[in-house]
Computed example of a mutant assay.
Amino acid sequence: MRVFNTVQLIGLWLLVPAVALSQRRIVTDAEANASGANQLTFSSADCSRASSLAAADIANHLPFLILQSGFAPQSFAADTVFENSYGVFYREEGCTGSVKECVVLYNQQVFHYLTEKYGRQWLRTVRKDVVGFREWKKAQR
């Protein structure tokens, strides 16, 4: 049986966190401001562009799932795990934001993308309060 020496253990101790934490992608303000999800905020009740905005975000490797949780937005540790695993970012709009129908269309496009790329695996860890998720999931049965 091989025994690790102190130098190897210290190296392993330093390497594991560096590898595990280096996968996190931070969305810059410029990326967030240029995203289709942000453009939905400035759309009127005409939601005809919502799906194409989502498709553009997907093509740019910057898709969002939009949340509207109310006055006190919530964030959970599992959000980062989901974002890192699937390359989709949560966007919290608080109690105000885009027209709900537009957000639903945007999110549905992202749901279809996730299903095509990852199968049904992502359904277990996505936040259940993503706008339009419950309705989309029922329609998929």
Results as ranks from 00 to 15, higher is better:
V3D: 04
N5H: 10
T6R: 14
T6L: 13
V7Q: 14
V7H: 06
L9V: 11
G11S: 11
L12D: 05
L14E: 07
L14M: 13
V16I: 15
A18D: 01
V19P: 00
A20S: 09
S22Y: 08
R25W: 01
V27W: 00
D29K: 12
D29L: 11
A32I: 00
N33D: 11
N33L: 05
G36Y: 00
S43D: 11
S44T: 15
S44G: 15
A45Q: 12
S48Q: 13
S48L: 07
A50W: 02
S52T: 14
S52E: 15
A54K: 01
A55V: 07
N60M: 05
H61L: 04
H61D: 15
H61F: 03
P63H: 02
L65Q: 03
I66A: 03
L67E: 13
L67A: 06
F71C: 07
A72C: 02
A72Y: 12
Q74W: 04
Q74K: 13
Q74F: 09
S75Y: 14
S75D: 12
S75E: 15
T80Y: 10
V88G: 01
F89L: 03
F89Q: 05
F89T: 05
Y90N: 06
R91W: 06
R91G: 01
E92M: 09
G94P: 08
G94M: 11
G94R: 10
C95P: 06
G97A: 04
S98M: 02
V99H: 13
E101R: 07
C102R: 03
V103H: 06
V104A: 05
V104F: 04
T115V: 01
E116F: 03
K117N: 06
G119N: 03
R120Y: 07
W122A: 07
R124E: 11
G132N: 07
F133H: 09
F133G: 05
